[in-house]
Design a protein around this nucleic acid. Structure first.
Lengths: 242, 242
DNA sequence: GCTATCATTCCACTTGGTGGAACATAGTCA
DNA sequence: TGACTATGTTCCACCAAGTGGAATGATAGC
């Protein structure tokens, strides 16, 4: 944190209020909250009302007591699913990046597209630039194909009918081989290798991809790169509890 | 919200910042945040620094970009597991309460004790008062016995060796019958009937209990009450996806 | 080396945020 | 049934917390 600054007091007080709620103190009265954070009732009331308005707290109409609101669950779900996945995956991604100095990225499926949620870039001047938050179709590109391969069949078929670039045969092959390769499908001159990442229930929740200029992927080292990408995805899956 | 009050502006701004993060915008620069909430860079920097200090946001040291912090996951988990269970259970609990006008409560296990996370009280003057947040042992009382019965055997045996009031035989009987009864075990003159609540994976995650003065539980209607408590617990389990 | 952009720090200004007091409501008890 | 207590709401005078513009620093790209 910037050294010259001090935290915003009102915001700290609001966070103090949210921190009052614990596994054994899921519901609190206004007085309990005020006592817990050692503030005047009027001050507490105003801050609590602000949090309630924004659904960070909710008030039980029967007991008039407060508990954490639905917005907490929403942003918590946002944090839990993707934050932990990214945090677990990042060290492995960095290792893979260090091996070849090529871009390594992590994709999940959202709204029938894939989204990059983490990436480690190449430091070489010629590189495939990828940004966290970038959205791409599922039907084109190696990482998209991985996510597509493990989708429910009806959803997959709907997407393939819209863009029949990939076939069910090649997706079956992917599931069998545990990886796929894209040669310039989305970007001319770019090669990508992608493999599935599984969670503790063996569900495919993400795709790991390594990509870069095709000129650097040609030659005898290609199958070594494939093996390393698959291995990296396996290591991430194991770290997630598979 | 109290009508005369206005929300605390600084707090709303902090919440606005947290609301900037979306499934496809997991990581944002300071400028992106400032643009998103239409505030000066200096103001944004100060608010962001406050949230970062409290781990509601975290800064990627490599990219200098922000994402939701670990504290979000923590309080989100607090909300998700118990909030949803309570919300799902409450309508059924109210129905059971309306049938007999006796106290109905919901318990989960935490740290080898049971905690009340929701309750609907009787309106009769003579009633067994129960408060959300109350903690009780697992070895005494109907709801505790339910949670005990479905614990891992080693943990259960450790608790039974400390307080051998209940036996493995009676717990086996409970598992077979799907309910248990307490006649004044924790409170003289109080009777409780409890049944297990299961989640989508059939794991017992909570105990439903109906309790009140023993004088109102005596007589021919008792087995009717038992059946209704079991049924209520089943309905809740089904609503949770079992 | 220069430029543009992003981020940090500083500080004068003002109004947002404060808490005490008054008031309202509900529950308890003799 | 009235007095008392506890909880929660509303009001408002006061002041310092919070603000944003300006200056400065850092970094990346050309």
């Amino acid at each position: 944190m910037p050294t010259s600054d001090t935290p915003v007091r009102s915001i700290e007080r609001a966070l103090d209020i949210m921190d009052c709620f614990q596994p054994d103190r899921l519901e609190l009265s206004l007085t309990e909250i005020a006592t817990g954070i050692e503030l005047a009732m009027s001050t507490t009331s105003r801050i609590v009302a602000t949090l309630e308005k924004r659904h960070y707290l909710s008030r039980n109409p029967d007991t008039q007591r407060y508990s954490l609101g639905s917005r907490i669950s929403q942003i918590g779900a946002l944090g839990l699913s993707n934050m932990d996945l990214r945090r677990v995956a990042l060290p492995f991604m960095k290792e893979l990046n260090a091996l070849y100095n090529e871009g390594v990225s992590l994709y999940i499926e959202r709204d029938n597209e894939r989204i990059c949620i983490e990436r480690v870039e190449s430091t070489l001047p010629l590189r495939r630039v990828i940004n966290v938050g970038d959205r791409h179709p599922l039907t084109r590109g190696a990482a998209g194909r991985v996510l597509l391969a493990y989708m429910p069949a009806d959803r997959r078929q709907a997407l393939l009918s819209e863009d029949p670039f990939t076939t069910e045969e090649s997706l079956a092959e992917l599931r069998h081989g545990g990886y796929t390769v894209s040669l310039g499908e989305r970007e001319e001159g770019v090669t990508s290798i992608a493999a599935p990442i599984q969670d503790a229930q063996c569900a495919v929740i993400a795709a790991l991809s390594m990509s870069g200029p095709s000129v650097r992927f040609e030659g005898s080292g290609f199958s070594d790169k494939i093996a390393k990408v698959k291995r990296c995805a396996e290591l991430i899956s194991n770290a997630l509890g598979r």
